[in-house]
Write a protein that binds this DNA or RNA. Structure first.
Lengths: 243, 243
DNA sequence: GTAATAGTGTCTATCAGACACTATGCC
DNA sequence: GGCATAGTGTCTGATAGACACTATTAC
């Protein structure tokens, strides 16, 4: 700020991913077991340093998603969660991590790459519990990610990122129930999402396979927001995510 | 990611501030005129590089708030907006800026420091208009800040950060009207904010000064969220802020 | 037929928006 | 008194939640 000789301190920048999906009525997140120091052998969010000085942050997030999770860009929603830069959060020096929130339809098993000795879907509730030890400040990042996705389901159409390109209303309901951890009335849920303009558009007649009447298929509509918002029945204590 | 010799690229980290207040029924933001290259003489958000490798991001934001805007920590709400790191956004090299949103009650004039030849409150609508040229990607950062504060007024008690420690309901209403750019019915607004549990707590009897009946004073309540949320009458087109 | 899920209709308590009305200060 | 703002009451149309009912499949 002052004289000519001063130069700003260089910093290392990493990108970390909070990758969510819904499997079997429960919210899951991708965790890896770190294969390199520091925190070797400890559970962590997938991520890594910028590859070079020209790599865009979002591009780095997509690259890590592919390398460490084995998910290709298509059909994965990716948005920035925030920057985490407390000094001392990484023993290697001053590292600032830009966290990204990724939402994937239920698809493949993640694959371990060179930095990770193992990778897989873990129950989000377990990953947040004291029983799971996470590296760095990844527990905090994960908690912020959970909070973000919970609140975004209320007033955005983010839930459609959890399901495939076409889906039934009850599949969408399962997403809400898994993320919010509540049970919803199917009839009221049906009316509500149908009434939200631009949320769902019909796509094909019906899907057979399960017992019971076949369900109509829908595709995500053009709207990014839901008016009026869906109301979460009751929430556990709310948090404010600031960093 | 690969071999032993590889090291991650160092990056410069800056902190930028989107400082809002309400003056005369309009949303204002602090802009400076840059006193140093690059973009010397151009309008920009206040901000600067990390002072040293040990400085916390939030601490740097508070420092810039004090140095460049002349606001001391007390009574200023500060929360992270996001990280902006597109390569080429700063001609000095690879710079990642962590933007913070600051909300201040209407208080002093900002003061120019060494990096800024001028600083002052500017109408937010003007700062976002094509007539105002902003340095770097600060127009985008500002747009994200406006969007954030607009949506947060709906379901959080953030509006109380715009007013002093004690305030009247009509002062609070002015905040909503300025930020949303709409007119609200005072009677319905009064009932609504009174009904929101933990939003307002009585503080003192009344304030005299203006014509008309004196208004009761309130203090910000313990709750950080509003249930049910206040509904914005109609919004201009919504945006999704991702980075 | 039974079981199971999809989708529709209806009732009720509550709420947002409109706005008449009362209360309390200044001049 | 007149005027201005604060605060309350009431009405109405819309909506959330509860839940009866019909529809369409598999067996």
């Amino acid at each position: 700020m002052t004289a000519d000789a001063w130069v700003p301190p260089p910093v290392l920048v990493a990108v970390d991913l909070v990758v969510f999906t819904v499997r079997g009525s429960e919210l899951h997140v991708v965790l890896i077991e770190r294969g390199i120091a520091p925190h070797r052998g400890v559970l962590a969010l997938p991520g890594g340093f910028l590859r070079d000085a020209e790599e865009d942050l979002l591009a780095a997030a997509y690259r890590e998603l592919s390398e460490e999770v084995g998910l290709t860009a298509r059909h994965v929603h990716l948005e920035q969660l925030g920057a985490y830069g407390t000094p001392g959060r990484d023993p290697r020096g001053r590292v600032i991590s830009v966290a990204y929130l990724a939402i994937a339809p239920r698809l493949p098993e993640p694959v371990a790459d060179t930095d990770a000795s193992a990778a897989g879907w873990v129950l989000a509730d377990f990953a947040l519990s004291p029983a799971a030890r996470l590296a760095f400040d990844h527990r905090r990042i994960l908690a912020d990610g959970v909070e973000r996705v919970r609140t975004k389901l209320e007033h955005s159409t983010l839930a459609t990122a959890f399901v495939g390109p076409t889906f039934t209303v009850s599949e969408l309901q399962s997403v809400y129930e898994a993320v919010w951890g509540v049970r919803l009335d199917p009839r009221n849920f049906y009316r509500k999402v149908q009434g939200a303009d631009g949320f769902l558009v019909p796509a094909g007649p019906a899907r057979r396979a399960t017992p019971g009447r076949p369900a109509r298929l829908f595709r995500a509509g053009p709207s990014a927001t839901i008016r009026p918002p869906l109301t979460r029945p009751i929430g556990p204590a709310d948090q404010e995510a600031t960093s």
